[in-house]
């Protein structure tokens, strides 16, 4: 565990907490893509199956359980408790366009042709693009509340920090995982445009509004 990895995990945790608090405090999930949240739930469930097979550390197990639980809670709030506030019409990204290519890619490019390994690989590929329905929703409505921007910034920073972690681990431990690195780079690139808007607008107290 190095500082980049820890910062990445904490950023990920912060993002999830911000999202849950936003929905809970405002009693609304307006501006949040339920489809991205469904994809994240699939990511956690397919990746953290190893909770049952491999013990790594208490930290590792607790974080996995927290991510799965928080993801389930988010889906419950969006699709059950505050369903009336869900932005159906704008959340129109077709997730099969992400799911199917990720399944195919995981079957072709993986470390090992076993069920666990393919599910892990699928979850890595899917995570890299899971934010697209959310970014699509923001681009459709043309704006995002500040709290939603903070959520997206924390969530995007997490994988960017993991990239630093992988560089560090490559140098310090000669450890690397090409699938994770490739997907992590793609994931971070998808946030770049948002990062730019966040830094130039939201941090200066302005609302995140896309140019018309």
């Amino acid at each position: 565990m190095n500082i980049f990895r820890l910062a990445g995990d904490l950023s990920h945790l912060l993002a999830i907490i911000i999202l849950l608090l936003k929905i809970w405090k405002t009693r609304s999930c307006a501006g949040i893509s339920g489809k991205s949240q469904v994809l994240f739930a699939i990511v956690y469930l397919t990746r953290y199956l190893d909770l049952f097979t491999t013990y790594i550390s208490l930290y590792n197990s607790i974080m996995k359980i927290v991510f799965i639980a928080a993801s389930g809670a988010t889906l419950y709030l969006m699709y059950v408790k505050f369903k009336a506030t869900y932005d159906h019409n704008h959340d129109s990204f077709r997730i099969e366009f992400l799911l199917i290519p990720c399944v195919i890619l995981a079957l072709i490019i993986n470390h090992d042709f076993t069920v666990m390994e393919i599910l892990w690989t699928f979850s890595i590929y899917l995570e890299s693009v899971a934010i697209l329905p959310q970014l699509f929703l923001v681009s459709k409505t043309g704006e995002a509340e500040s709290i939603t921007s903070h959520y997206l910034f924390a969530l995007g920073s997490y994988r960017a920090l993991y990239l630093l972690n992988w560089i560090y681990r490559y140098m310090a431990e000669s450890h690397y995982d090409l699938i994770a690195i490739f997907a992590g780079v793609v994931q971070t690139i998808l946030y770049c445009d948002f990062f730019y808007l966040y830094i130039t607008k939201v941090l200066k107290g302005k609302k995140l509004q896309l140019p018309a």
Binding site: R5, D9, H12, D50, T54, I56, S57, N60, M63, K64, F67, H111, D112, E117, W120, Y162, N165, Y170, S174, H175, Y176, D177, L178, A180
Partner: peptide, 10 residues
């Protein structure tokens, strides 16, 4: 350098 696939990350 050998690629390691041990999944100790989240």
């Amino acid at each position: 350098v050998k690629e390691c696939t041990k999944k100790d990350e989240l």
